[in-house]
Simulated scan of single mutants.
Amino acid sequence: MSRTPRFATRVLSVGAALSLGIGLTACSAEQGSSVEPAASETTSTSAAQSASPSPTVPSPEEKAITKAETAVRKYFRVMEVSLRDPKNFNVEDFKKVAITTALSDLRNGVNSHAYQGVHQVGGIKVESIKDPEVSLTNRPNEVPPEIPNVIFTVCYDLSDVDVVTEDGTSIVTDARPDRVALQVGVANYEYPKGPWLVDFTDGPELTSC
Rank of each mutant, 00 (worst) to 15 (best):
P58R: 07
S59H: 07
S52P: 07
K67C: 12
A16Q: 15
T70E: 15
A47W: 06
G15P: 03
A71D: 09
T45N: 05
P55D: 00
S28D: 14
Q49C: 09
R73Y: 03
K67E: 13
V72A: 00
P55Q: 03
A26C: 15
T43G: 01
S50M: 11
C27Q: 14
V72S: 05
V57I: 07
T70Y: 11
Q49V: 12
E30W: 09
A29E: 12
K74T: 10
K74L: 11
A51N: 02
S44R: 08
T42R: 00
T43A: 12
L24K: 12
S34A: 12
T45I: 00
V14C: 06
A38K: 01
K63G: 12
S28C: 14
S50C: 09
P60M: 04
I22D: 06
E61K: 05
E69N: 08
S44M: 11
P58K: 07
I65F: 05
P53Q: 04
A48Q: 08
T43S: 09
S59K: 10
G23D: 15
L12G: 13
E36D: 08
A47Q: 12
G23C: 11
L24M: 12
G21M: 09
A17V: 06
V35Y: 00
S13P: 14
S54E: 05
A47K: 10
S19T: 10
K67L: 15
L18H: 13
A47M: 14
T56Q: 03
P53L: 01
T66S: 13
R73I: 03
R73T: 04
P58V: 02
A51K: 02
L18P: 00
V14A: 09
E36M: 12
E61C: 04
E41N: 07
P60K: 05
A71R: 00
Q31H: 13
E41H: 00
A51G: 01
